[in-house]
Computed example of a mutant assay.
Amino acid sequence: MSPTPSPADAPATDDAFAPPRAQTQDVDGRTWAVASGCWTTLAMSTRPAWEALAKDLAALPPADDRAWDLRPIGQLDHIGAQLLWEHWRQAWPATIELSPQHQAVLDQVAKFTVATPDEPPKSLSDRLHALAHHGPRAMVVLRDFVGLIGQLALDLCTLARAPHRAPWRDFSGHLYQFGATALHITALVGLLIGVVLAYLISQQLRNYGAEAFVVNILGLSLIRELGPVLAAVLIAGRSGSAITAQIGVMRVTEELDAMRVMGIPHGFRLVMPRVLALAIAMPLISLWTSMAALAGGMLAADAALGISPSYFLSALPRAVPISNLWLALAKSAVFGVLIALIGCYFGMKVKPNTESLGRGTTSSVVTSITAVILVDALFAVLFKGIGFRG
Results as ranks from 00 to 15, higher is better:
residue 131 L to C: 08
residue 44 M to H: 02
residue 104 A to C: 06
residue 48 P to Q: 07
residue 211 E to L: 10
residue 88 W to D: 09
residue 36 S to G: 07
residue 83 L to I: 11
residue 343 G to R: 00
residue 69 D to I: 06
residue 278 L to A: 04
residue 101 Q to Y: 12
residue 157 C to Q: 11
residue 380 A to I: 14
residue 128 L to S: 10
residue 66 R to G: 01
residue 194 G to L: 08
residue 329 L to N: 03
residue 217 I to Q: 01
residue 51 E to R: 13
residue 248 G to Q: 08
residue 191 L to C: 11
residue 375 V to C: 12
residue 162 A to S: 14
residue 110 A to M: 09
residue 94 A to T: 07
residue 84 L to R: 02
residue 171 F to R: 01
residue 312 F to M: 10
residue 174 H to S: 06
residue 114 V to D: 10
residue 126 D to M: 10
residue 57 L to Q: 07
residue 235 I to V: 13
residue 114 V to M: 07
residue 37 G to Q: 00
residue 354 T to H: 08
residue 262 M to G: 00
residue 100 P to A: 13
residue 11 P to L: 12
residue 310 S to M: 15
residue 363 S to M: 11
residue 68 W to D: 01
residue 274 R to K: 05
residue 283 P to L: 02
residue 340 A to M: 04
residue 212 A to H: 06
residue 278 L to S: 00
residue 27 V to M: 08
residue 66 R to M: 10
residue 208 Y to S: 15
residue 14 D to H: 03
residue 113 T to P: 14
residue 33 A to S: 05
residue 76 L to H: 09
residue 5 P to H: 14
residue 204 Q to I: 14
residue 25 Q to V: 11
residue 179 G to K: 02
residue 79 I to C: 01
residue 236 A to W: 05
residue 305 L to M: 15
residue 43 A to I: 03
residue 226 L to T: 09
residue 87 H to I: 02
residue 342 I to T: 03
residue 230 L to A: 13
residue 120 P to V: 13
residue 35 A to N: 02
residue 22 A to T: 00
residue 48 P to I: 02
residue 201 I to N: 01
residue 156 L to F: 11
residue 104 A to D: 06
residue 330 A to Y: 12
residue 10 A to I: 06
residue 57 L to T: 08
residue 83 L to E: 01
residue 6 S to N: 08
residue 169 R to K: 12
residue 14 D to G: 03
residue 339 I to Y: 03
residue 306 G to A: 11
residue 89 R to H: 13
residue 214 V to F: 04
